[in-house]
Simulated assay, not measured.
Amino acid sequence: MTRDTQRLDALAQEVHASFEDTPNARLQEILRGLTRHLHDFVAEVDLSFEEWEAAIDFLTRTGQKCDDVRQEFILLSDVLGVSMLVETLNDIETPDATDSTVLGPFHMVDSPVRELGENISPVSDGQLCVVHGTVRDEQGQPVAHAVVDVWQADTHGFYDVQQPDKQPQGNGRGLLTADEDGKFYFTSVVPAYYPIPTDGPVGELLHATNRHPYRPAHIHFIVAAPGFRELTTHIFIGGSDYLDSDAVFAVKDSLVREFVAREGGTANPCGVTGAFVEAQIDITLHKEGGDNH
């Protein structure tokens, strides 16, 4: 059957024109770009009606899988590389700040407020680690009292929200306030690599494409301070499995850190007296309205 390209073009132009009176210019730009590329995509792959129905069903079930502790749409964005694309585009504007990376699907629970030096994983077993760093601006000056939100999986690769019968809500999470010199520090356990959830539509997608679901071991951070752009990032554990094939494409070399074994009696900001593993990550925030060039 010969494709009526003139009719397809006319339909696309009609949809494009329907946004003519959109009051918000940026919304108009986004919707016009979206529909243009979407129409081109559907025409390029010659989408069948059955495939369209399957896509609608997939997206419907993706939304139905979302709840207060699980965000399947973020997971879908992650495994398609869209989350990292957005992060990378925004990093271009802040070349001197710490690299950002994906939020992930499990920042759906408020982290409990914790004091500097406190254990954010009090009920988790495993190797004790001390994590510390300094929050600075792009000129190297400390950012006093920055808020540092951290969360992580345990040594078995599970977040608290995945095991409500084994981990209390808030285990593996902490909301810290850096001191006047921008320093933050806490203890935890060394997290394990783990699979992203595969019991929903995103898992079906990975299975259908013969992709593995694993993420290398990491700790999440959101760092914020008045007058600065909020930063979402990770530290990845050097030597972890899947550093070169993260299921959500989130690894950046600048965010990989060595977790170094220390003997008992080694000085540390948390006052740990026994053996521990140490990791350091210094955070550089971008000052809003600043000019770095």
Rank of each mutant, 00 (worst) to 15 (best):
I196H: 11
I196T: 12
P197R: 14
T198E: 07
G200T: 11
P201Q: 13
V202G: 05
L206K: 11
H207F: 03
H207S: 09
H207D: 14
A208C: 04
T209P: 05
R211Y: 08
H212T: 12
H212K: 12
P213W: 03
P213T: 07
Y214K: 07
R215V: 12
H218T: 02
V223E: 06
V223N: 02
A224G: 09
A225E: 02
A225Y: 08
P226S: 10
P226D: 14
P226A: 12
R229A: 13
E230P: 05
T232C: 09
T232D: 03
H234D: 02
I235M: 14
F236C: 04
I237Y: 04
G239C: 06
G239H: 06
D241R: 12
D241C: 00
D241A: 14
Y242E: 04
L243K: 06
L243F: 04
S245P: 00
S245F: 01
D246V: 00
A250D: 04
K252G: 00
K252H: 07
L255K: 01
F259R: 02
F259T: 10
V260S: 11
A261F: 12
R262V: 09
R262M: 12
G264C: 08
G265Y: 11
A267C: 03
C270Y: 10
V272N: 05
F276E: 06
E278M: 13
A279R: 05
Q280Y: 01
D282R: 06
